[in-house]
Design a protein around this nucleic acid. Structure first.
Length: 362
DNA sequence: ATAACATCTAGCCTCTTTGT
DNA sequence: ACAAAGAGGCTAGATGTTAT
């Protein structure tokens, strides 16, 4: 049965192939699977001939080029060469590359699948393009929730009910991230672009602090002594924890901090990236409220950090964040004195503007 | 909610003071 | 006399407040 199925997979060799190309044409080459990435297809083809992927490329006349480089940046000539050797169309080869991703998003491409689908694992390994991206949380073939590399399901971190509530947000965050990666992200008047959102989410909103009591496992006195280093170790506290309090509550304390900016996604774990997608969705849908909430929760150092990031946000948004923040701080219970805003203010002195422009005009 | 205005601060520059 | 350090002033830019 394998043979028949196999034959369907193989490229039919028809006419129209000239003799020179025929000489180097591979006898058989499987068609790429849906959404398969070039490196995966190359290693499958190489496997048929008992070669490594680089040896196969060598045979194609592309010595010294790595499959990972090819799939990110395939020149027309290289694509045509592989197409001719494999007997496929150049567009089929091109469809296996990450050409639809903008150059700024290429850092997100992982060398192999980032997460783990329990159902895909039962079939021969096909590396799909979307599996390389950090915001793919569901298997594109089976639709099931992916697991981390350690095969731990998301349910082992977040209760099912919380996940159900967050999933729609995560999907909207994923949509925005994917749009950014393909350079079709429409930035509005209010919300800043995706890299800015990630910079905000990954900025510390207060000083690093050791695990709180709620974050510590129940430990005997003796265990507390033995784990003194863990109990006193300062943990970076990023605005993501405010934007996604569910993550703050359920993530393992040592695994909470993420890398700054885009690297957070590029290097993050499944749980971290899920939280980032939720945070991106919330900031996209309501930047003012969530940014103000982070500022309200911040200490002085964190506030300075966050405001530095906010400088690049649209001024109309910043203004509304200020209004919202005052609303939040003024509404604090009478027990606590409202935090007096002590950081830099601003406003252009319009009386000086004519002088300035006069100076600037030669 | 927005626009105009008032007020404030960090960063930069110049000028003065001080030490060698 | 020269250089380093400090004082002081200025500007661009960020917010708070108020009126519409």
């Amino acid at each position: 049965m394998g043979f028949r199925g196999r034959q369907d997979d193989l490229v039919a060799r028809g006419g129209g192939v000239n003799a020179a190309a025929l000489a180097s044409l591979l006898p058989v080459a499987p068609r790429p699977a849906a959404e398969e990435r070039l490196s995966s297809w190359l290693s499958r083809v190489a496997g048929i001939y008992g070669l490594s992927a680089s040896a196969l490329l060598d045979h194609f006349g592309l010595a010294g080029v790595s499959p990972l480089t090819l799939e990110q940046d395939l020149s027309a000539g290289q694509g045509a060469l592989i197409a001719a050797r494999a007997g496929l169309s150049a567009s089929t080869i091109d469809a296996m590359t990450f050409a639809t991703l903008a150059p700024h998003a290429r850092v997100m491409i992982a060398p192999s699948a980032r997460y783990f689908c329990p159902l895909c694992a039962q079939t021969p390994a096909i590396g799909r393009k979307d599996a390389a991206l950090p915001w793919t949380f569901w298997c594109s073939v089976h639709g099931v929730r992916l697991r981390g590399r350690d095969k731990r399901p998301m349910q082992s971190f977040l209760p099912e009910s919380v996940l159900e509530r967050l999933d729609p947000l995560a999907r909207r965050g994923v949509a925005r991230l994917a749009a950014w990666a393909e350079e079709r992200d429409a930035v509005g008047e209010i919300d800043p672009p995706v890299p800015e959102l990630l910079r905000f989410l990954t900025t510390p909103y207060r000083r690093p602090s050791p695990p709180s009591l709620a974050e510590q496992p129940r430990l005997s006195l003796e265990a507390r002594r033995a784990n003194h280093a863990f109990l006193t170790r300062p943990i970076v506290r990023q605005a993501l924890l405010v934007a996604a309090p569910e993550y703050d509550r359920f993530a393992p304390v040592l695994a909470k901090p993420v890398r700054p900016g885009l690297a957070a996604l590029a290097c993050g774990s499944l749980l971290q990236n899920y939280a980032l997608a939720v945070g991106v969705a919330r900031l996209t849908e309501n930047p003012v409220e969530h940014a103000a909430a982070a500022l309200a929760a911040a200490d002085a150092e964190g506030e300075t950090n966050l405001r530095r990031i906010l400088r690049t946000w649209p001024s109309a948004t910043r203004r509304r964040i200020g209004v919202e923040l005052r609303r939040l701080t003024d509404a604090q219970p009478a027990g606590k004195a409202p935090r007096r805003r002590r950081l830099q203010r601003s406003s252009i002195n319009y009386a000086r503007v004519p002088q300035i422009s006069a100076r600037l005009v030669p």
